[in-house]
Amino acid sequence: MMDWGALLLSLKLALFTTLLLVPLAVLLARPLAWSRFSGKGLLESLVALPLVLPPTVLGYYLLTAFAASSPLGQTYAALTGRTLVFSFDGLLAASLIFNLPFAVQPIQRAFDAIPRAAREAAWCCGLSHWRTLWRVELPLAWPGVLSAIVLTFAHTLGEFGVVLMVGGNISEETRTVAISIFDRVQAFDEQGAAWMSALLVAISFAAISLFHLLTRRVGKSYG
């Protein structure tokens, strides 16, 4: 009654998404927090768009963009021999896009809160920009990065609409736990749906609790 394959796939998708997206979000959030450039407002709006778009709309456009006949789909197929639609690869790509605001926004807010003088002090100590990022900016922005990790992970576990549109419902390939629950309800397997829903609640709750615990500890060490 428990679809372990779906759970494993969801965890794998969440893990890969988090690992790929959070470093990307750091690179994107930094200029958004500190630099002024033309098109910054537009970029911020684009990043926030997945928050307000219906998942089916986002899913529809991704499906169109990923289609085997599209330039993107053809290029991907030529490079890897795989397709983007109805595959784990496509699911991961979609996941990276619909999680953008969840990863970028907390990190951007954290970078925003770092006083410029802290970075200037690091530069005047001789730290290169790269060293400043590692030794000063990331430690100070850590609560925001942690928040991005947890939000991205938990949100990927729970996403339904985009996953269904782009990935479909292929066992062991694109059927995530959220879709499996939907399946069970449609098949009147209420007990299976209940178990899996409860498990998803437990995992999400654990992730959020862990986040709170870690940020509290970070807050303490800042003294």
């Binding site: 006083p115 003088a117 802290a118 200037e120 002090a121 690091a122 530069w123 005047c124 001789g126 730290l127 290169s128 000063v136 430690p139 100070l140 060490s221 800042y222 003294g223």
Partner: peptide, 18 residues
């Protein structure tokens, strides 16, 4: 600034809290 050997004491010190 990284290449200039200027030791600077900032007005609010700018010590790194972590």
């Amino acid at each position: 600034p990284q290449v200039r050997r200027a030791g600077m004491v900032f007005q609010s010190y700018s010590l790194l809290p972590h």
